[in-house]
Amino acid sequence: MHEIALRAECLQKRFGGLAAVRDVSIDVHVGEIHAVIGPNGAGKSTLINLLSGELFANAGEILLGATNITAFAPDRRARAGLGRAYQKTTIFPKFSVHENVRLAAQARSSAPLRMFGGVQSDTECHRRAADAIGNAGLSGRSQVIADRLSHGEQRQLEIAMVLATDPRIILLDEPLAGMGQSEAREIIALIASLKIGRAVLIVEHDMDAVFELADRLTVMQDGGVIATGLPQEVRTHPAVRAAYLGNYGDVA
């Protein structure tokens, strides 16, 4: 069993009368890709927003390593080691690839808001940015303005930015959304490489990719967890089959 990077316990989120997330507990381990799947409206996106801090839970706790981050704002969670990529690519479109990633490295540097001296002088930031760009497969594209990149490359850029913040856990919200076959292959290979030394939590609709990537699965329905475990266990779980096939598809 690997060390737990992120643990959520009994998370609840209500929007008015609707319980979008009910009593969800999840452990994400270092060295593993943990996929969250479920039908539309199951609460997957709400869960990822609760974990990253864009939404606050009505009840429950979130632990990042040994730190209780339940009350932390998103920027503080990021500084504590939580990185996230969005469903809709979220980058700085007018800046170069290098500046995008350098900003990410700056956010985790020792003096992120220094007012004296230009950004050029922080060679450590530049080195970490260059490393992250290389790891995400964008070497040679670092001077390109981000909005000139292809959709797939923008995804890679977003992952490079997350890498440059040196996270302990990475949250990926539908990283393959709107992507062609060949582009998707590259991103899948990139995601597979992210788990080395880190934990990865991924929400994804592409089941082939999920079963290819995931070391562990959590299945959600109507805001609650209906199954969690290894992929082969989950695949044959009666409640999961019922959720995906409908109630009348009697499980053999």
Partner: peptide, 11 residues
């Protein structure tokens, strides 16, 4: 340029 991204990077 992108408040959400800047915040989620930790600024």
């Amino acid at each position: 340029d992108n408040e959400r991204r800047a915040r989620s990077l930790g600024f």
